[in-house]
Write a protein that binds this DNA or RNA. Sequence first.
DNA 1: CGTCGAGTTGATTGTTTTCAACTTTGGTGG
DNA 2: CCACCAAAGTTGAAAACAATCAACTCGACG
Lengths: 213, 213
Amino acid sequence: MNAIAFNTFEARPVILERQPAVAESGVRMNYARDEEIFGEGEVGRCVYKVVSGAVRTYRMLSDGRRQIVEFHTVGDVFGLDGERCHALGAEAVRETTLQVMRRDAFLHEQGSEAAIQALLKKFQRAQAHMLLLGRHTACERVAAFLLDFQERAGGADAVDLPMSRQDIADYLGLTIETVSRTFTQLQAARQIDLVSCRRVILRNPAALARICE
Amino acid sequence: MNAIAFNTFEARPVILERQPAVAESGVRMNYARDEEIFGEGEVGRCVYKVVSGAVRTYRMLSDGRRQIVEFHTVGDVFGLDGERCHALGAEAVRETTLQVMRRDAFLHEQGSEAAIQALLKKFQRAQAHMLLLGRHTACERVAAFLLDFQERAGGADAVDLPMSRQDIADYLGLTIETVSRTFTQLQAARQIDLVSCRRVILRNPAALARICE
DNA sequence: CGTCGAGTTGATTGTTTTCAACTTTGGTGG
DNA sequence: CCACCAAAGTTGAAAACAATCAACTCGACG
């Protein structure tokens, strides 16, 4: 319902202004792989909820390094970074459907309680990611990453990663080569199986959890 | 006003329960250097605002590594981590006075707007710290750290650091030796002056900013 | 079947950690 | 006031880890 295809960013706010500011409603929008949802520094009045697919929020550094701040999967809310402008950029990791709400509608009309809970959750996730980046080895980071996505996928041992090695590297603060090598190591240690480069089977989640401590 | 000395943690909730849940009010409490404000996993119903001094929030890993998540200086609010329990521990970096409020009073009665703004700010700080830890050299981290504390101190070139080298190391995800070496390097490069190990003069803040990009 | 992009593997380099010794600082008591 | 002591900080040398540069493989797609 309300699935609106669009191409240019400029069209979006106009469409949204016409929408009723009802609690759980909002427009649904579809994004292609690598399509920009909003840019860094862009003025944003919207909050997004992932209906299907996956989204990365990131920050570019002047020398070209990219830090992926968070991956958002089904059910996650994003777009609350920055007060009037988005501090982060957001792109679809693959084909993605989002539910878009006006930001003030989300923060106030929907009840501040929900907004506070959403913010607390995001804050805690940011802290968890910070702890991961702090002083952990490549192996610990990759293991934690895999367990995170296993949990998001409902706990099954087969995990489908929607993102590329480069995305993973930029999320974990490593290089693509180090991520690749670590996957290979974990496979050699019989803790994972790489069915394909996007599909991982966790053969020994307990051992992975032990790596993360 | 309301300055209550205390020694045991057990006494605190009792005292607080008797306090009126008024907006900007709250009990003031004093803490000695290294004194625990709340522990990791502890049930907490309070939110804290720094009146004077400095606080570190941290998380211990099973192998003894410690990640300092944030330093809180005058005016900062902390204690919102975790929903019922504190996800982080908090300790006074030095002699510190805090204003303590009941958490629900802060989140609701004071107006959800203030709580949302506080949470957004904390969220954004957490993200900034994450970016710093992601893929930055020791030099970039230390430079960013110094500029952060210069800004907190009001922008003067002389910065007094309330915390030890170990605190800085655990905040930046480095070892104490690397932090020390980096300070020495920056001094050799004439970008800082180490008057004493806790007192730094930024001789060339612009150069430091350039290091951070 | 060939091409292009993504991913893997190898060799080397560079940075940070580790381990160890040394120096400075701050507090205490003679 | 000085000497002593413990804690904090600095410096050095060696080792470990991840980054870089480069070659190679794999897989999707025309």
